[in-house]
């Protein structure tokens, strides 16, 4: 995080900065449904849309943490629902390894990086998930590792 920004942040009340990866077919659609249904959640996260959760390279997550994200959430179709047949299964397997590295090698609390499945009809779940994740990160406080 840039020094100027950090300074500015220290002055005001701290709010977490969260990054969420959504797959185009299920979880992004779930986020859309949260919108259409007007389910409210905290505004501390930004979504990056990818076609499949299988696209989320571990370096995306590491880069976000390095640049100052307080939490990263990867979302995709439920297992079995993947638009690309099995992309999310690879996400799941890859995430397991990544999560271990984050906890064991980087010493970051595992709750800060999560993988969740959200379907296109789970607008409520998407909103609840973001609320819960935001609260969790708020409890953990700002990430200070790098």
């Amino acid at each position: 995080m840039s020094k100027a920004k950090k300074k500015a942040k220290q002055k005001e009340e701290w709010t977490p900065e969260l990054l969420v990866f959504c797959c185009n077919w299920c979880s992004y659609a779930g986020a859309d449904l949260a919108g259409v249904s007007r389910f409210q959640y905290p505004p501390n996260m930004r979504i990056i849309r990818v076609m499949c959760s299988g696209r989320v390279d571990p370096t995306f997550v590491l880069k976000a943490l390095k640049d100052g994200a307080d939490g990263v959430l990867i979302t995709g179709c439920h297992i079995g629902d993947c638009h690309y047949i099995s992309g999310n299964e690879y996400t799941r397997d890859r995430f397991k390894k990544l999560h271990e590295i984050i906890i064991k090698q980087l010493g970051i609390d595992g709750k800060r990086v999560r993988l969740e499945w959200v379907s296109a009809s789970e607008g409520k779940r998407f909103a609840d998930l973001i609320t819960e994740f935001t609260n969790q990160i708020k409890e953990l406080g700002p990430l200070k590792v790098f």
Binding site: L19, R46, I48, M51, T59, D67, G68, A69
Partner: peptide, 16 residues
């Protein structure tokens, strides 16, 4: 959805 493009999004969100 290449590396540079996604990195640029992450960077500008968190650093700018």
């Amino acid at each position: 959805y290449d590396f540079d493009q996604i990195f640029a999004m992450i960077e500008t969100y968190l650093l700018d």
